[in-house]
Simulated scan of single mutants.
Amino acid sequence: MKERPHGAPAIRRPTKSDFTASLSEGWGNFVANPVPDLIFASFFVIAGLVMSWITYATGHTFWLILAVMGFPLVGTLGAVGFYELSRRKTEGGETGFGAVFSEVWSQRGGQLPWLSAIIIVTFMFWFFLGHMIFALFLGLAPMTNVSSSLEVFLTTEGLSMLAFGSAVGAVFATFVFAISVLGMPMLLDRDVDFITAMLKSIGAVTAAFVPYIIWGIVIAVITLAAMVPAFLGLFVAMPVLGHATWHLYKRVTSGGH
């Protein structure tokens, strides 16, 4: 594991060109060397398919809605591999899957797992709360399978549940986004504790709330849209967004490349 700079970096306010350039660089990284990206992305696709199979096999497909809506929350965990790929491509390092995975794995005893644990706990709490919201609004509805009872969502109770659940989910998503959009790449890039990384990330998002929230919405929309064709769109969406997030982090912490 290479020696990393100590302490959190200074973070400037992002500009519109930072976001557009980061997306462009993310796409460029993907098309330049797609093989390791596709390998990392396959974990997302497989996870989505397994998640779908479990919910259908157990007859509790309403869980799939919660899982799909919460999927972007945990996307930042798997994106660490894309961050490391981007770093190595920028610095001219080895970009094979084995080398990248080895570097990511070497972080297991550092600060990354702590931030990852917070994200996972938040995701699980969203599952619990989402189930409570479902029971609150639709607990008495004659439905056991969402795929065969979609009309229940068009009732007053169903629409109220979707509206309230979406609002609650947005709060969870905003929290995870705020602590991870710069916090996760910072932990990979710098020798800094996870509390500092979280606070610096939250501070940066708070200081430029509108630009970052728009960026977060773009990420969420692209991610959710990529799930529609049997999660296969994640093969492209996750690498591009992962690389773009790294490049955005580097731009706002070092003034560009």
Rank of each mutant, 00 (worst) to 15 (best):
M238H: 01
G96S: 02
V121C: 06
A135C: 12
E151H: 13
T245H: 13
V121K: 04
P5D: 09
A230K: 10
A47Y: 02
F82Q: 03
G96C: 00
T223W: 00
I133K: 00
E157Y: 15
G70C: 03
I39K: 06
A57Q: 06
P14T: 09
A178T: 07
F82S: 02
G242F: 07
T95N: 03
L38M: 08
T61P: 08
T61I: 13
W63Y: 03
G255F: 02
A163Y: 04
N33C: 04
I118E: 10
G92W: 07
L38K: 02
S148D: 09
E84H: 13
F43T: 01
L85H: 12
R87K: 11
D193V: 00
A197W: 09
V168A: 13
A67G: 11
V35K: 15
V171E: 03
I46L: 03
G98R: 06
A8G: 05
F82M: 02
M238C: 03
L140G: 10
A244T: 04
M132S: 12
G109S: 15
G169H: 02
T206L: 10
W27I: 08
A99Y: 00
P14W: 07
F125V: 11
W114E: 09
T20H: 07
V31F: 02
A57C: 03
I54H: 02
T245W: 09
S22F: 05
L150V: 06
F127P: 04
D18V: 15
Q107M: 14
V74Y: 04
R12L: 07
I11N: 10
E25K: 04
I11L: 14
H257L: 08
M238I: 01
V240K: 02
T122E: 12
T223F: 01
A178Q: 13
E91R: 14
M161D: 12
A8V: 06
F231L: 01
L129F: 07
L187T: 04
V168M: 12
G130W: 02
H243P: 08
T196V: 08
R12P: 10
K250Q: 10
G203M: 10
I195N: 09
H60W: 15
F209Y: 06
L159N: 15
I46D: 01
L199C: 06
I213V: 13
L162N: 05
V121P: 05
M69V: 06
W126M: 15
L136G: 14
G256E: 11
V240N: 07
A237P: 02
A21Q: 05
G28C: 12
L115E: 07
Y212W: 14
M161K: 10
P229A: 02
P9D: 04
E84S: 11
Q107F: 09
L150R: 07
F125N: 12
M186V: 08
L77A: 05
H257W: 08
V152E: 09
F123W: 04
A32G: 03
T144S: 14
G7N: 14
V218Y: 05
